[in-house]
Amino acid sequence: SGTIKLLLIRPASRVKILVSKYISFLLFGMLLLLTLFVISIAVNGILYGFGYMDLPLVSMTADGQIVEKNMVLNLWKTYMLNGVSTVMYITLAFMISSAFRSSAMAIGFTIGALFAGNIIMEVLQRFDWSKYLLFANTDLTQYLTGHPFQEGMTLSFSIGVLAVYFLVFNLISWLLFTRRDVAA
């Protein structure tokens, strides 16, 4: 804490400082996601044996077809799709911390949104416009199972909606960070 003043007196621009802080947030989040993947594989292997890792994952699609998948590959896809939601939540937290100068508020609001987002989306699912909300699109694993949030939603639709939110969140962060004064 308190390092932003020391960074701002250097010849680096505010945009460069903002981007470097954002990239460090993203790298830390992805490191945590990768660590979780490795630990989950290791714990599963210790508890159930590593010999079962090559067993196929058998599931049923929405139209009743039986599908056989590689278990480790399916787990990796799940983690990568959750990586997209991790990036979105990091971007949301970064925007809030840039806007309100409070790390505690950013963390608290983002964790609250993480838990309350699914509940709010269950209430709003009956409305057609709810498919454009952030929380309806952050869980991309819904396309692995073939059960999207609403009929007509596709993976490319969700990625497009998330890209718009990503740009808006970063634009707000940039506008607020480059125009504000740094207080003591």
Results as ranks from 00 to 15, higher is better:
S20P: 00
L176H: 03
D63N: 15
G2D: 01
L81F: 15
L18N: 03
A62T: 04
D54H: 12
V58A: 11
E151S: 15
A62K: 03
N82Q: 15
L114I: 04
P56S: 10
V87L: 15
S13K: 06
V67T: 10
F127P: 00
A184I: 06
S98M: 05
V67P: 00
F127N: 04
A42S: 11
K131V: 04
V38D: 01
S103D: 09
D128P: 01
F115G: 13
S102Q: 06
T3P: 00
G45N: 10
F28T: 07
F135P: 04
I4L: 15
D54N: 14
L167R: 01
I172E: 02
M30K: 08
R180A: 12
L81N: 07
G49V: 10
L133A: 14
G108M: 04
L34T: 09
T35D: 00
K16Q: 11
R180P: 02
A93S: 14
G2N: 06
A99E: 01
S103C: 03
Y48S: 11
S85A: 14
A93I: 02
M153P: 05
K5A: 14
P148K: 11
H147I: 11
A113W: 08
T154N: 03
T141I: 11
M88I: 13
L32V: 13
I39K: 05
S156N: 12
S130G: 02
L34H: 00
Q65R: 14
A99D: 01
F157G: 03
E122Y: 12
